[in-house]
Simulated scan of single mutants.
Amino acid sequence: MGNGKAARYRGGIIIGQIALLLLGLGFIEYIVRAGIVGSLYVPEPTRVVQEIAALFTKGELFRHLFVTLQEFAAGYVLSALAGIGTGMFLVLVPNAETFFRPYLSALLAIPKVTIIPLLMLWLGIGLSNKIAIVFLFCFFTIAFNTITGIKQTAEQHLKVARVFEATKFQTIWKVILPSAAPTIFVSLRLSAATGLVGALFGEMTASKEGMGNLLIQATSVYDTAKAFAIITIITVVSVLIIAFIDTLEKKVVLKWKSS
């Protein structure tokens, strides 16, 4: 398939996707305006768009969004560093995985929502509480995927490194991490979505600000249109975060791996 034909094919797919989205929104608009479904349960898409515009115009959105992104970014970065570091330690240090894996599995099995009340007791309801929640939502996915990715390193690559007398650091940096990178980035994408959910859940449980708190305020007065507007904004932010991680993988890690 030539470049021009491929571009037209992609353009056709995008047009089809947009058309399907508009068709779905139009259908929802019709059934709500016709009274088939009450606007208390599902608002008209046009009202949701108006609420999104109002949130941006009033300026309250930016303060709450900044708080949520701050909580997410801190917890996510800490969990990525700790998860990748833990995974490397357990695989690369002899017998470490055998010794520590039962403890890690037991911690993974604990429902995160049962720990949140304890985190409120230990850390209060401020920033540190939300960072800890995001960390818990992300850490185990990253750690276990790092373990899996490192174990998938081809044995012949390791043999080549030994033939060239590569140091331990060079083997990790030039062979093991590039090989494990695709699996690690899968976990980073998954954790980006779940980490944002963790931040929102923490704010909905106990917080005076943030997108989760804004959502609770809207639902408490049955402002469904505003609630859907907030959910739409959060969804777009989540998609943008995942798109950034995809770009990072393509621009940095794939070049690193090919070199």
Rank of each mutant, 00 (worst) to 15 (best):
G4I: 04
L65T: 05
V237M: 08
T68H: 03
G126Q: 04
G12R: 06
L107T: 14
G38Y: 08
S187Y: 09
F62P: 03
M88N: 08
W122C: 03
K112S: 08
A181M: 13
T171D: 09
E60D: 14
A161L: 14
T146P: 01
R101L: 10
T46D: 09
G26K: 05
L20Q: 10
I142S: 13
L55P: 03
I110E: 03
L190G: 13
Y76P: 02
I231K: 05
D246W: 02
N129H: 11
I14C: 05
R162G: 12
P43W: 06
L177D: 11
K168I: 09
P117Y: 02
V186Q: 10
G202L: 01
L78E: 12
G87P: 00
L104I: 13
A143C: 03
L248N: 04
C138Y: 05
L69W: 06
A229K: 08
L188C: 01
L196M: 09
Y76A: 07
G124H: 04
I142N: 11
T68I: 07
I216C: 02
V236N: 00
F100S: 06
T232P: 11
A227T: 11
L22F: 13
P117T: 00
A161I: 04
L240F: 09
I110W: 04
M211T: 01
R101V: 10
T183W: 05
F185M: 07
L254A: 03
I241C: 03
I233K: 04
T153W: 12
N3S: 10
F144N: 11
L23K: 02
L136C: 08
H64C: 05
G149H: 07
I31R: 07
R8G: 05
F185P: 04
A143K: 02
I84S: 04
P45K: 01
A106P: 14
T183I: 07
T114F: 01
M120V: 07
W122F: 12
V37D: 08
K257F: 00
F62S: 11
W173T: 13
L90R: 04
A7S: 09
G4N: 12
S238K: 00
A73Y: 14
D246Y: 00
G16A: 10
I133D: 08
L22N: 14
Q50M: 05
T194V: 14
G87I: 09
V32K: 05
K174R: 14
I131E: 07
M1Q: 02
R101D: 12
Q170V: 06
W173K: 14
G26F: 04
L55Q: 12
A193R: 09
S187A: 14
G124V: 02
Q217N: 15
G75K: 12
F244R: 02
S258L: 13
I242K: 09
T98I: 09
E51F: 07
W122M: 01
F72Q: 07
N129S: 10
A132G: 02
Q17I: 07
R189C: 00
F137W: 10
